[in-house]
């Protein structure tokens, strides 16, 4: 197994700040991205990404290549941090947690429509069970291979495909009107 991060992790673990910076540049966007998909909250997602990298700095000196790809490990850490935050949200039962507040500023109608649609899609994703959401975040948005995504989630490829199917089915039902508009129905709208 070839790990494209192996040299950088080894150097970062030995205190090479340039290697550590290269790891940030390479992975930060993905870490924030997966956390945003999971938490539907930009600020919380950035906190998660920061925590992931703090763990990277802590663990890099002890990293043993060959067991799992470093990126896989980072995704696992990010997802576990997200699961923790989601659990705390449920315990607090804060109804507003993770809910994107619609921007009330006046917008051009096209932009307003685009934002409304995006908010609806974000809401539907947020309503999925966590594991389905994670599977879709990894495969659909991060464009990971089925094998890599299954490894991150610690499940078989068959189980991953089951999560993806159920997730997409729920999204299809929740977003049928948006799909209809996008695929041509909008032309008939007033």
């Amino acid at each position: 197994m070839i790990d494209p991060d192996e040299d950088l992790v080894r150097s970062a673990g030995a205190g090479d700040a340039r290697a550590a910076e290269a790891l940030v540049r390479r992975h930060l966007t993905k870490m924030v991205g997966v956390a945003r998909r999971m938490l539907n909250d930009g600020a919380e997602a950035e906190d998660v990404a920061q925590e992931v990298f703090l763990r990277v700095w802590r663990e890099a000196p002890r990293w043993k290549p060959g067991q799992a790809k470093f990126e896989t490990w980072m995704h696992r850490v990010a997802l576990n941090l997200c699961y923790d935050r989601l659990r705390r949200r449920r315990e607090k039962t804060d109804p507003d947690a993770g809910v994107m507040v619609a921007d009330s500023r006046p917008l051009a109608s096209d932009e307003w429509l685009a934002r409304q649609r995006a908010a609806k899609v974000q809401g539907a994703l947020a309503a999925l069970p966590e594991r389905q959401r994670a599977a879709i975040a990894l495969v659909h948005f991060d464009e990971m291979s089925n094998i890599a995504a299954a490894e991150i989630l610690g499940i078989s490829v068959e189980a991953l495909e089951s999560l993806l199917s159920r997730g997409r089915r729920a999204l299809k039902a929740a977003l049928a009107d948006v799909a209809h508009d996008l695929m041509g129905g909008a032309e008939r709208a007033p």
Binding site: A118, Q122, L182
Partner: peptide, 15 residues
């Protein structure tokens, strides 16, 4: 159709 809908939230901007 569903892929296109999900594409609406693909771009999240840089950190």
């Amino acid at each position: 159709g569903l892929d296109a809908v999900l594409g609406l939230v693909r771009d999240q901007g840089a950190p």
